[in-house]
């Protein structure tokens, strides 16, 4: 076990874990979306889990830092909060905010983070922009809500871990990136019906079970 200091408090962590996991395990919340407990290789794609480490010039993502003894970490500095708020606003600028009609309402990661960072569910001065189509219904038992998705990639990761080969994937590129079901024809119906780990892990209700057959 190693001892490090986070926000002035000493915490213990096992060698080899990441700073993010160490903090979360010690009940120190750091906003995050793409981190999955138990999966070693981190995507580092959501860019929310920033912290400041003594000796480093700029905030770093805590999911990519292995714990070291005597690390001095601050999770609540102006630079950290600024990046986190910008990242959240960016995500909200492409998010269809319609919490009342969303199955993730009250357990949504975006809601939690907005509350934690004390900001509204609004993108600030950024232009709101939604993609077409709103829903991809091509999968036999799943529906994908394009404008809820935050592209954290957890669904693809659990599908890969559980099934060896992911049936869902990222498709297209850049701003147009989506999660896609290409080619998952009827034969996937049974296996997907039984698994639905992707639905369970989705932090925002972008992947849901088809309501009617």
């Amino acid at each position: 076990m190693l001892t490090l200091t986070v926000d002035g408090k000493e915490i213990q962590a096992k060698k080899g874990t990441t700073l993010l996991k160490a903090c979360l395990d010690n009940d120190i919340y750091i906003p995050n979306l793409c981190y999955i407990d138990g999966i070693e290789e981190t995507a580092a794609s959501c860019r929310l889990c920033f912290v400041e480490i003594e000796g480093e010039e700029k905030p770093v993502t805590s999911c990519t830092v292995p714990v070291k003894a005597s690390l001095k970490v601050k999770t609540d500095t102006p630079a950290v909060r600024r990046l986190q708020k910008t990242a959240l606003r960016l995500l909200l600028s492409v998010h269809h905010v319609d919490c009342k009609n969303c199955p993730a309402n009250k357990k949504c990661a975006l809601q939690d983070m907005a509350k934690f960072l004390k900001v509204g569910l609004k993108p600030g001065h950024l232009q709101h922009c939604l993609k077409e189509p709103e829903i991809d219904t091509s999968h036999p038992c799943l529906d994908y809500y394009t404008n809820r998705c935050v592209l954290c990639g957890k669904c693809i990761q659990v599908c890969l871990t559980h099934n060896g080969q992911p049936e869902i994937t990222f498709a297209r590129r850049g701003f147009n990136t989506v999660v896609s079901f290409f080619g998952t024809a009827k034969n996937e119906k049974d296996s997907c019906d039984e698994c639905i780990r992707c639905v369970d892990i989705c932090p925002v209700g972008a992947l849901v079970l088809k309501s009617s057959p």
Binding site: S45, R47, L48, L91, L151, R173, T177
Partner: peptide, 18 residues
């Protein structure tokens, strides 16, 4: 750069769009 962004991380994907 916006067209060539890979789309993985939030800042580049959505930030460059704005």
């Amino acid at each position: 750069t916006q067209k060539e962004s890979c789309g993985k991380c939030t800042f580049c994907r959505i930030g460059s769009y704005h």
